[in-house]
Amino acid sequence: MVYSRAGRAQALQTYLPYIGQAPIYAFNPDHIDWKRKQVAGMVKTENGWRVRLFPLPAVVYSQYYGDKRRLFFRLEQRIGIGKCFNAINRFDKLDVHRTLASTPIILNLPETLPYSKENLRAMLERHGVVFLKPCRGSKGKGIYRVQKLCQQDELEFTIAEDVWVPFCKVNDIGALDRQLVQSMNKKPYIIQKEMNRIKLDDHLIDFRIMTQKGTDGKWTITAGLTRFVRRSYFISNVYRICDSLQNVLERLFEDPERRSSVYRGIESLCIETANVLERKYGLLGELGIDIILDHDDRAWLVEVNAMPSKTIFDDITGDRDKEMVYRSPMDYCKYLLTKKKVIRHKRKKSIISRKRKR
C-alpha cells in the first residue's frame, strides 16, 4: 500500500525481484471498494504498468508515510487480524522516548525532555550542550545545537543549525528562548543531551541498523552501516562516506571478544527496542535504528525510523546484506500468509477463528 502512482510503480519495481511466485500489487487506500471487497491495484505487465481490479489482499505491507491504524483495523475485519503491518510509519520522537524509557532500555537513552524554556534551562545547567529536534521526522532538517558558555565571566548561549559554526549568540535565557521559538516555527520539539560519541578518521560516526522480520516472523539485524559525518557538520544526514557496520567495528576494536561484545550490545538493544515499539504501535516489520557509541563502548539509541531508507545500503554492504534488506519484508509477508487466519466479527466484536470447531 503506497500513496502516489509513481510511488506504487517504484515500490513494485523494488520488490519484484524478491517475491518469488507470490502475486503482488500496489494500491492506495482510496482505491478500496469495501462493498465489493475489491481494490484497484497496480501491477507490472509485459506492456508496462497497469491498474486492474483485485480481491482484497491477503497481506498488506504499508509504504504510506503516516498513521493508517484506522484503515488497518477496518481491513483486518475482512482479511484477518495480524495480516497488515507497518500501519504507522511516522513516529513522534517524544512518544517513542517515553515508551522506551519505561523499560530497561532507559539505560541506553540520552536524557530527553519536551521543549520548554524551563526544561531548556535545566538541561543546559546539567549538560552544557543540547540538541533540539522536531518531534516528527525531519530527515535531518531543523536540528539545532545549543551551547552554554562563560566568556570573561559573562554568560553566552550559541545556536547552530547543521554546522558547528553558530548563527546566533545571545546573553540570557529569555533571548535564547525567543530565538528558538521563532526558529522552531510553532512545531513541537524535544531537547536531547549531546553524547560524547566516538570518532574514526577524525570524523564523528553513527550506525544505522536495519532491524527487520523475515521468514520466521522474528526480529533480527539484517544490515548495518556507518555514516562518517562531514567535519563541518554535526548532523549525520550530511555524511562524507558510508561503510558497513562490521568493517568499522573491526577497525575500532582489534580484540575479537571486545568487538563481539559491542556487536551483541547493539543487537540486543535494537531487537528489544523493536519488541517494545511493536507492543505500543501494533504489528511492525522493519525499523531503522540510529545508534552511537561512547568511549566506554556503550551503545546509545538516538532515533528510531519507522520508514527507513534502504537505498543507502546499496553501495556499502555485501550482495547478501543488500538482498536481505529488500527481501525481508517480502519474506515476512509470506510468513503472515502461513499463519492461521483470524477475523473480527462485526456485531459482537469478538475474535473468532475461521477454522471449524471439531
Results as ranks from 00 to 15, higher is better:
1 M>T: 06
2 V>G: 09
2 V>N: 07
3 Y>T: 05
4 S>A: 02
19 I>V: 15
19 I>D: 06
21 Q>C: 03
24 I>F: 14
26 A>G: 09
26 A>L: 08
32 I>S: 04
36 R>G: 10
38 Q>A: 10
38 Q>W: 04
41 G>V: 08
43 V>T: 15
43 V>F: 06
47 N>R: 04
47 N>H: 13
48 G>W: 11
51 V>N: 07
51 V>I: 10
51 V>A: 04
53 L>A: 06
56 L>G: 03
64 Y>P: 01
68 K>T: 00
74 R>D: 10
76 E>V: 02
76 E>G: 01
81 I>K: 14
82 G>D: 11
82 G>C: 09
96 V>G: 03
100 L>E: 00
103 T>F: 01
105 I>Q: 00
105 I>C: 03
109 L>R: 09
114 P>I: 10
115 Y>A: 12
115 Y>E: 10
116 S>N: 04
117 K>H: 09
124 L>G: 06
125 E>R: 14
130 V>S: 04
131 F>S: 01
131 F>I: 01
132 L>S: 07
134 P>Y: 11
136 R>P: 05
136 R>M: 13
136 R>L: 15
137 G>D: 12
138 S>Q: 08
140 G>Q: 12
140 G>K: 08
141 K>D: 13
141 K>Q: 14
142 G>F: 13
143 I>F: 09
147 Q>G: 07
152 Q>P: 00
153 D>P: 03
160 A>V: 10
162 D>T: 13
162 D>S: 11
163 V>C: 12
177 D>K: 05
178 R>T: 09
179 Q>K: 14
186 K>W: 03
195 M>K: 08
196 N>K: 15
201 D>T: 00
211 T>S: 15
213 K>D: 12
215 T>N: 13
217 G>I: 08
219 W>V: 03
219 W>Y: 04
220 T>I: 06
222 T>H: 12
223 A>M: 04
230 R>P: 02
240 R>M: 09
242 C>R: 14
245 L>E: 15
245 L>Y: 14
245 L>T: 05
248 V>Q: 12
253 F>Y: 15
257 E>F: 13
262 V>M: 11
271 I>W: 09
271 I>R: 15
272 E>C: 10
274 A>N: 07
278 E>Q: 15
280 K>S: 13
281 Y>G: 01
282 G>W: 05
289 I>C: 05
301 L>W: 08
302 V>S: 01
305 N>G: 00
308 P>K: 00
311 T>Y: 02
314 D>R: 00
318 G>S: 06
321 D>E: 15
324 M>R: 15
326 Y>N: 04
327 R>V: 06
330 M>W: 11
331 D>I: 09
331 D>T: 03
331 D>P: 03
331 D>M: 11
334 K>G: 03
335 Y>V: 13
335 Y>P: 12
336 L>D: 05
342 V>F: 01
347 R>K: 12
347 R>Y: 06
348 K>W: 13
349 K>H: 13
352 I>T: 09
354 R>D: 01
356 R>D: 02
